[in-house]
Design a protein around this nucleic acid. Structure first.
Lengths: 215, 215
DNA sequence: GTCTATATACTGATAGAC
DNA sequence: GTCTATCAGTATATAGAC
């Protein structure tokens, strides 16, 4: 079948693909892989079910594409550190960038949560490989900081999980947070306040003196 | 239809109902409400699908029953506090009991997470009522402690969410934790270490002096 | 109480008209 | 490229034999 790719058809294709990805991220995040239906994704994207499958191949491929997109965002956040860096600066940047990921991509964060909740069948190799190595490397630096007296000798892995969990919470449990605080949405000032709170409590809790106090 | 309730039939009924609840909690926790199938629950319980529906009425009723059971466990943990209590003792007990709920009921914790992840459609009234009131009451006590100089003036609601999220993490993200730390399970000593870590960091982070240091 | 059989709706995916 | 029609499979739920 010959198809003339006019600018219009290309633009339409891009627009449809984008709409599908956004819709699918929302539906997968809400109902998980099994609970999501192609029909629901198609309706959310404003397209017939067949078109969705035409564009993305299969439900499974669509899910993998979305997970890869989210892990890409995640990796973009994971910069390397060294013993010579300032603990306060690094930890604060760590908390802030993780929270910014939650704030800017709540659906993707929830998608990730749903995937891990079902035992992370699609992410095993990533978690046991790339991400474990990254955690181990960072943990060693934390330990060296503790040896140099720059922070308390806390278990570095539990510390990393503390930062991940406390920030991730505002995506995954957004419904609970909104219900309890009687809000419709979490505003940018809300996110700023929460982030400042987490930086303050976690850094102090680890015995790290903050680099500067203007926030 | 007349049925003679011998001790055996009663015992069988109880055993089956128990098996169904356990199996359903696992399947709903893993795949969410929509992603769970009665068939999968029946297989996990070792019963024919029809029997499951005979016992529990419908998938929806089964789900509600499980949520109610979990909220019962949750409420059993929520003891009241007053300004005259010791902040260190109360906060530490809060963290420890929340972590103990995670440890003893990981499936229930994940079930709760999956429910909130989909927007908490079944738990709206609970979250906006009972639980919000409980949080508000506790928040007021935290604020009074801060006024009396017993702890830093941190936002009490973010503090409660910090405790919930950092403990809940070890149920919801168990797959990630196990992959990264290269474990098959989280042992009781692991849970003790994590709990000690969280008590130490969070209490210190809020400027609360710990009551005793023997743990 | 427990099972088989089945009703009805929906699932992911595809074939083929346009 | 986009749609309708349809496939085989599975979903929840129930009716009725035993």
């Amino acid at each position: 079948m010959t198809t003339i790719l006019t600018p219009d058809t290309t633009r339409a294709r891009l627009r449809n693909e984008q709409a599908i990805l956004e819709a699918a991220e929302q539906v997968f995040a809400c109902h998980g892989y099994r609970g999501a239906s192609v029909q629901a994704i198609a309706e959310a994207a404003g397209l017939p079910k067949s078109n969705v499958l035409y564009y993305v191949g299969s439900k499974r491929q669509l899910y993998v594409t979305l997970l890869e997109r989210m892990m890409g965002r995640w990796n973009a956040m994971l910069d390397d550190i060294s013993v010579d860096d300032d603990p306060a600066e690094v930890l604060e940047a760590f908390i802030r960038s993780k929270m910014e990921l939650t704030r800017s991509h709540p659906q993707g964060s929830r998608l990730f949560a749903a995937e891990v909740l079902q035992g992370a069948p699609f992410l095993q190799t990533y978690l046991r490989g790339e991400l474990r190595d990254w955690v181990d490397a960072r943990a060693r630096v934390f330990e060296q900081w503790a040896e140099k007296g720059l922070m308390d000798p806390v278990d570095p892995v539990w510390l990393i999980f503390l930062i991940w969990s406390s920030t991730q919470h505002y995506a995954d449990f957004e419904a609970q947070v909104l219900s309890i605080t009687d809000r419709d949405v979490l505003s940018e000032p809300d996110y700023r306040n929460i982030t400042d709170f987490l930086c303050r409590v976690i850094l102090k809790g680890c015995g790290v003196r903050r680099a500067s106090s203007e926030t």
